[in-house]
Design a protein around this nucleic acid. Structure first.
Lengths: 158, 158
DNA sequence: GACGACATGTAACATCATATCGTCGAGCTG
DNA sequence: CAGCTCGACGATATGATGTTACATGTCGTC
């Protein structure tokens, strides 16, 4: 199946990722508040996409006081709009974007066994999907490409 | 962008579609009850993907008594499992499958303006997505390919 | 210190989905 | 026919997800 090789930017992790996220937000004229930092920290602390309420719990614990879910939603929405976080539509869940500085139509491989999601950027596949939409007279704004199945680890185990 | 031409089975409508849906269910050893018929009718009555609760309202009106949401969910789940209905993940909504007799990884073009969804079957695109997952060591079971954007009509209007 | 802009809090509500257990009727079997 | 089982559906509750409206806080600036 001919598709461009995914380009090989590094997927950032840890502090470097936080710095990148902050920079991305600031570049958009948004603030990097303690609250937002806490939400982003919470996101990076999960090993799989987290629901807004799971994030709420973690942030509440981290800050030592109860945070309302809608505050978290606001921030998650901002993050998604700013490409700092991503939303897995088929799971109603969020994760930190490992490279907020570049824009992709990303693809999620979501394991139905362990719940983990692998985020890959294959611009070739995305372009194919977009082109198909265009052929149908449709103006593609945001492709949602998620593959439900089993990850390499879980295929062996289950 | 090379992709197979979508094959040209007819997308069924109206009574023919109901018959096809019924046949599909029966072939799986499932019953075609009055309740299920009402749910399917409701689905075909919408011009866009409908939420389970919207279906509930329509079915309740049609039957002249209040139907509980969980009954509708049961039936919708059965329909989806039987390929008689499809679920738009990015909208938490359901629609009747225009050709329940054949299995596809279908693609939705979801208009964010008017809410309508166009259902296309491009096995080439789906195969590309599946292949990409496979390359990553992932066992693809159910690709979710939905393109959010504007339909041809709404692009002109808005 | 008054003001504006924006972030966050509070509360209520709306929507989406599942769990559990009870009832009913269709079809089987003795 | 009596009694049984089984699948479909009902009733109720609850949990999960997402939104709205408005109040309050915080901070930079004049």
């Amino acid at each position: 199946m001919a598709s461009m090789r995914p380009h090989d930017h590094r997927h950032r992790t840890g502090d470097a990722l936080v710095v990148a996220a902050q920079a991305t937000l600031v570049k958009r004229g948004e603030q990097w508040t303690a609250m937002r930092a806490a939400v982003f920290d919470a996101l990076t602390g999960f090993d799989q996409p987290a629901s807004a309420y799971a994030v709420t719990d973690v942030v509440s614990t981290a800050l030592g006081r109860r945070i309302a879910a809608n505050s978290i939603y606001r921030i998650l929405d901002l993050f998604v709009a700013s490409n700092v976080a991503l939303r897995v539509e088929s799971r109603n869940a969020y994760l930190a974007n490992a490279h907020p500085e570049c824009q992709h139509d990303c693809i999620f491989l979501v394991c139905d066994v362990c719940g983990r999601a692998t985020h890959i950027d294959d611009d070739g596949v995305a372009a194919t999907v977009r082109a198909t939409a265009t052929q149908a007279g449709f103006k593609a704004l945001r492709p949602v490409i998620e593959v439900r199945g089993k990850c390499a680890t879980c295929v062996r185990i289950v």
